[in-house]
């Protein structure tokens, strides 16, 4: 059974073909790295897979549901329930504390004991002393760990990570990538990661490379 299936997807921007006839699949709990140079179309592909953009042609299925045909509200529900996101620039809400940021997905799903669950998770990730800090008080590594906590706290089926180590130094990047992969394995979450970082890419099960909009196995 496939969690994510991409069939013959093409995406163009005026005058440029960004993605060409992409075929991709991911099983539950499986991890996949998408490599590629800047401008190769990695982020565009992730936008399509997250339902933030629509393909010009082709089909995308998540958990056997056709993402490309879903309405805006259905897509929002799908992301909230079954997906988690980790960004290069962390994207924590500056107005909320670390704990409140991690609580967000649970709040959205109206889960009980959200604060307890979130604070337990943050403690496991070594952020116990930082739970009431606002993001601007945290280091880059700490912010990314909070972002990972936010991505896994509701135990989604898939985590989409876009250059999760891009803004971090080598050592912190390694710690964060280990944490991300271990967490996914522990909770049986599929991971789709777009990265330049070959060290990170080597840690995941499968790797593909995007080159001029075409996907190749590595």
């Amino acid at each position: 059974m496939k969690l994510l299936e991409v069939k013959d997807v093409t995406k163009n921007y005026p005058g440029t073909e960004i993605l060409s006839h992409i075929e991709l699949s991911l099983a539950p709990g499986e991890s996949l790295a998408i490599l590629g140079r800047s401008g190769s179309g990695k982020t565009t592909l992730l936008n399509l897979l997250a339902g933030l953009d629509t393909p010009d042609s082709g089909e995308i299925y998540f958990d056997q549901k056709p993402i490309h045909t879903l309405k805006e509200s259905e897509l929002a529900q799908l992301r909230g329930k079954h997906m988690g996101f980790v960004f290069q620039s962390y994207r924590l809400l500056e107005a909320l504390t670390a704990l409140e940021n991690v609580c967000l997905p649970l709040e959205l799903l109206e889960k009980d004991h959200a604060i307890q669950t979130a604070s337990d998770l943050l403690a496991k990730l070594g952020l116990e002393s930082k739970i009431n800090q606002f993001p601007h008080r945290l280091s880059g590594g700490e912010q990314q760990r909070v972002a990972i906590a936010r991505a896994i706290v509701h135990q989604p089926k898939l985590i989409i990570a876009d250059e999760p180590t891009g803004n971090l130094d080598h050592r912190t990047g390694r710690e964060v990538s280990d944490l991300l992969i271990e967490s996914c394995k522990k909770f049986n979450i599929a991971l789709l990661v777009a990265t330049h970082d070959t060290e990170l890419a080597n840690k995941v099960e499968k790797r593909v490379e995007l080159f001029d909009g075409v996907l190749k196995s590595v």
Partner: peptide, 19 residues
Amino acid sequence: SFRQKDVHTLKILGFSYKA
């Protein structure tokens, strides 16, 4: 600009317009 970033993140995380 700060709000824009927040709202985009919220939208990606699945928050509705109403929220």
